[in-house]
Computed example of a mutant assay.
Amino acid sequence: MSAIVTICANQKRFRPGPNSTPATLAPAPQATLVSTWLDLVGATAPVAAATDLYGGRAFGLARDVAAAAGTKLFVVSAGFGLVPGSQKLPAYSLTVARHDEDSIQRKAVGPFDPATWFEALTDGPYSVAWKDVFSEGDGRVLVALTKPYAEMATPTLAKLPASDLRRLRLFGAGLGTVLPAPLKPYLLPYDDRLDSLFPGTRSDFAQRGLVHFVQNVASTDGDYSTDAARVRALLAATKAPPRPERRAVTDETLLTLIRSRLSPRASASRLLRQLRDEDQMACEQGRFARLFRQAQIEGAAHDAP
């Protein structure tokens, strides 16, 4: 393998400063927003390497398997572009998801295109280009994405020459509906049967597929067809587990439960698992991270003298 690429995480180990969220930006057209944002973060002191900035299980899986394999890690970031794992970054909070409190879309005057936003970020102070990722060697490049990040980052990836794309292996649930045509032939055929081989959530599906591939397939050379056949053979030996029926609830209901269980030593991952498995409530990881952070801020304000 030449490189592993994963997405950033809402969960971060450092709190952003006042100039490292969209809250400080005045509403403006997208081109103005990206220029202003890059100026802000370019003038903000880094706090940690990307590998140490992001938390959460999905990011941890990709980080750890890259380290174990001795392979360079890159991160697709909505705030910085395409970032080497060793790159030191400022603490920040930004997303292209419209309904998040740190959504850059909510500041846009006029249309907002995530792919154009990401392409502009790759000219920023912390980003590299896709060609730099593929220049790490001549082996496979493994890329684990969710659908929103695929929509944001893959239009630029698809511009690479065919000789590079033949080395690409893509991981992610439902990506076939959003990938540009040149990339669709390189999406590996993982499906819900992966949950029996490597249990987890939908939010870390891509990274679980990535880890499974590294541990069970990547040690042997092969083109895409050979790799895909190996994946299908491994999946053929198992069945997808029954998926639990979790009920949809409002943010306020989730906040009430989080507040009631919050303590100084509360584990976000353990609490999310409790909400899903014991309370049978549907809660996407990013949504939970936002509500957990809100409950923490409220708790800190209440405890202040």
Rank of each mutant, 00 (worst) to 15 (best):
S2G: 12
T6S: 08
T21M: 04
P22T: 06
P27M: 01
P29Q: 07
Q30D: 03
D39N: 15
A45W: 02
A58D: 06
F59L: 06
F59I: 01
R63V: 00
R63G: 04
A66K: 00
F74Q: 03
V75C: 04
A78P: 04
V83Y: 03
L89I: 09
T95P: 07
A97I: 12
R98N: 12
H99Y: 13
E101M: 13
D102R: 12
I104S: 06
I104T: 09
R106N: 13
K107E: 11
F112H: 07
T116P: 06
W117N: 11
D123E: 11
D123Q: 11
P125H: 11
W130R: 00
D132N: 14
V133F: 00
S135E: 14
S135P: 02
S135M: 08
R140Q: 13
R140N: 10
L145M: 01
A150R: 01
A153H: 00
L157M: 06
L160T: 00
L165Y: 02
L170V: 00
G172V: 01
G174E: 09
G174Y: 05
L175W: 07
G176Y: 08
T177E: 15
V178W: 00
P182Y: 01
L183P: 00
L188F: 08
S196G: 15
T201Y: 14
F205C: 01
Q207P: 04
G209S: 06
G209M: 07
L210R: 02
N216W: 03
D221H: 08
T226S: 13
A228G: 03
R230P: 05
R230A: 13
A237R: 15
R246G: 07
D251N: 14
E252A: 15
E252W: 00
T256W: 02
I258L: 09
R261T: 08
R265V: 11
A266Y: 05
A268T: 11
C283P: 02
C283Q: 00
E284F: 02
G286I: 03
R287Y: 07
L291H: 01
